[in-house]
Design a protein around this nucleic acid. Structure first.
Length: 463
DNA sequence: AAACAGTGCGCG
DNA sequence: AAAGCGCGCACTGTTT
C-alpha cells in the first residue's frame, strides 16, 4: 500500500521548503554571554567534583574500582550504592543492572546523591547545551535543522542543535541556557504556542462530549479536577504545583496509556521532591493521612492494592477516569486499536498512513501526535511562505517546537505579528481542516526588546 | 579507531 | 494480557 495520500505528501513537501528557509535564517546567539557561562559552569563543576571526591562514598568507590574508577559511571554508582553500601534498590534496568536515574536515587538518603545529581545536571548543561551552541555557531548565529523524514509519527525532529529540548522546566537551568538565545538588533523574541493542542486533536478523533466540555468551557479545568481526585483535596486547597502533578503525573500519562502503579509512584514521590502542601500550608502527606491514605503501597501488580494506600486510591481514580468520566474516549481507543488489528494500518486525520507492527499504545498515540504537529506545520508554511511575505513584514520565524513557533520580531511589528499568528494558526487553520471540530487557541510569550529567550513573559494576543 | 548497545536526561 | 508516546545527545563499556 502507498503509505501516503496526495494531500499528506504536499504538506510535507511544502513543509520541508518552509523549514529549510527557517534553517537558513537562523537564530542569534549572545557570544559574550556564552563564553562567560561556559567559564562559570566549568568552575562550578570543578568545585563540586572536589567536594564529591572527599566523601566516604568516593573512598569506597576508589577502593572498589581501583584504576577503573570513573565517578561519572552510572553502572559503577549503582554497584557502590546498592551492591556495596547495601542501600535498598527496587528498580532495575532492562538488562538487569541497578537503575541510577533521578527516581531510583531519590530513595537513597545520603548527601552524596544530591551533589552527584547536581554535578550530572551541570555537566549536561555544559556539554550538550553550552558547548553544543559553540560547536554549531557560525558568525554569531545557529542554524538548527528541522527534519520531516525521521519519525514514526510524522512529527518533526531537530538536530545540530536540537532546538526541541532546550531547558525550560528547571528555572535555573532554563536561565543558564536560554540567556544565550537573543533577538537581532531592534527586535524581540516571540513564542506562540497552541494551548493543549494534543488534547484538542485527540478530541477530534474520539469526540468525547465531556472532554469537549472541558476544552470549550474556560471555567472548567481537567488537570485541577484530577489533582483534586488524586490527592483527595477540595478545589480551594489545590496549589499550582499540585495541579502540575495532576496534569503531568496522572492525566497525560493516562492519555498515553500508563497505568495506576506508575502514576501512584510518581504522585507519591512528587510530594517530598516538590515539598507539596495544601493552600492552607498543610504538608500533603499529613493531609493524605487525615483522609485515610497512610502509605504508597507495595506496587506489586500480582497483589491486590491494600486499603489505605495511595496505590489503591489511584487505581479507583483510574477506573472512574475511563469508565465514568471519559467512556467515549475509552471506547474510541478500543475500536481504533481493533480496526488496526483487522487491517494492519490506520490513517490520520491529516491523510498519513501508518502501517507495520505497532503496540497498542503506539496505535493510540501516533495519530494524535502526528496530526497535532501538522496543525503547527500548516500554520508555519502559511506564515513563512505566504502571509509574512505578502504583508512585506520583516518578522523572521527562527524555530519550531512541535506546537509552538519562535519568531524574531521587529519592535514595531509585534502587534501585527500576534494578530497574524492568531489569524493563521486559529482562524484560517480551522477553515482549512474541517475535521477540527473543537476550537483551537494560542498563547504568546514575548521578550522585552533586546532581551533573551530566558526573559519572555506572557502577553495578551490582540484581536 | 570506529561501531554498537545501554543508560540517562533534556523537551513536547 | 499488558501497562505512557515521540525525539537527539553525551557518555560508559564492550566488541569489531
Amino acid at each position: 500500500m502507498k503509505p501516503y495520500t496526495k494531500r499528506s505528501y504536499d504538506l510535507l513537501h511544502e513543509g520541508v521548503l518552509a523549514l529549510a528557509q527557517i534553517e537558513a535564517v537562523g537564530m542569534r546567539v549572545d557570544e559574550a554571554y556564552l563564553a562567560k557561562a561556559i567559564h562559570r559552569t566549568e568552575r562550578r563543576i570543578n568545585r563540586l567534583q572536589t567536594t564529591i571526591k572527599k566523601t566516604d562514598v568516593a573512598r569506597i568507590w576508589k577502593k572498589t574500582f581501583r584504576a577503573k574508577t570513573n565517578l561519572n559511571s552510572n553502572e559503577q554508582l549503582g554497584k557502590i550504592l546498592f551492591g556495596v553500601m547495601k542501600y535498598p534498590s527496587t528498580l532495575t534496568t532492562p538488562s538487569g543492572r541497578f537503575k541510577t536515574d533521578g527516581e531510583a536515587l531519590s530513595g537513597v538518603d545520603h548527601p552524596f546523591v544530591q551533589d552527584w545529581l547536581r554535578l550530572q545536571t551541570l555537566q549536561k548543561a555544559l556539554s550538550t547545551y553550552l558547548k553544543g551552541l559553540v560547536r554549531e555557531m557560525k558568525d554569531g548565529y545557529i542554524h538548527p535543522f528541522f527534519h520531516l523524514h525521521t519519525t514514526q509519527t510524522y512529527r518533526s525532529s531537530s538536530d545540530k542543535i536540537n532546538f526541541h529540548n532546550q531547558p525550560v522546566r528547571d528555572p535555573k537551568l532554563m536561565r543558564l541556557i536560554r540567556t544565550a538565545f537573543i533577538p537581532r538588533e531592534g527586535r524581540q523574541l516571540v513564542e506562540v504556542d497552541y494551548s493543549g493542542l494534543e488534547v484538542t486533536i485527540s478530541a477530534c478523533y474520539h469526540k468525547d462530549p465531556r472532554m469537549i466540555e472541558y476544552i470549550c468551557d474556560p471555567t472548567k479545568d481537567m488537570h485541577r479536577d484530577m489533582a483534586m481526585e488524586c490527592y483527595r483535596l477540595p478545589q480551594a486547597e489545590v496549589t499550582k504545583p499540585v495541579r502540575y502533578c495532576g496534569k503531568n503525573m496522572f492525566v497525560f500519562p493516562q492519555f498515553y496509556g500508563d497505568w495506576y502503579i506508575d502514576c501512584a509512584r510518581s504522585l507519591w514521590e512528587a510530594i517530598d521532591k516538590m515539598k507539596l502542601q495544601t493552600t492552607s500550608g498543610l504538608p500533603l502527606k499529613a493531609h493524605l493521612a487525615q483522609v485515610g491514605i497512610h502509605s504508597l503501597g507495595r506496587l506489586d501488580p500480582k497483589e491486590r492494592p491494600q486499603p489505605g494506600t495511595l496505590e489503591a486510591h489511584i487505581q479507583q481514580v483510574e477506573q472512574r477516569f475511563w469508565k465514568k468520566k471519559f467512556p467515549t474516549y475509552a471506547r474510541w481507543k478500543k475500536s481504533w486499536y481493533e480496526a488496526y488489528r483487522q487491517k494492519g494500518w490506520f490513517k490520520t486525520l491529516t491523510g498519513f498512513i501508518c502501517q507495520g507492527y505497532m503496540k497498542k499504545n503506539e496505535v493510540i498515540n501516533y495519530p494524535v501526535q502526528g496530526s497535532a504537529f501538522h496543525c503547527l506545520l500548516w500554520a508555519l508554511i502559511e506564515l513563512v511562505k505566504h502571509e509574512l511575505k505578502r504583508r512585506r513584514m520583516k518578522t523572521l520565524v527562527v524555530g519550531q517546537i512541535h506546537d509552538s513557533l519562535v519568531a524574531d520580531v521587529p519592535v514595531g511589528e509585534l502587534e501585527d505579528y500576534l494578530k497574524l499568528a492568531y489569524h493563521v494558526m486559529v482562524t484560517r487553520l480551522m477553515q482549512h481542516w474541517k475535521w477540527i471540530c473543537v476550537p483551537l487557541n494560542i498563547e504568546a510569550e514575548v521578550s522585552p526588546p533586546g532581551m533573551s529567550w530566558a526573559d519572555v513573559k506572557p502577553m495578551e494576543i490582540p484581536k
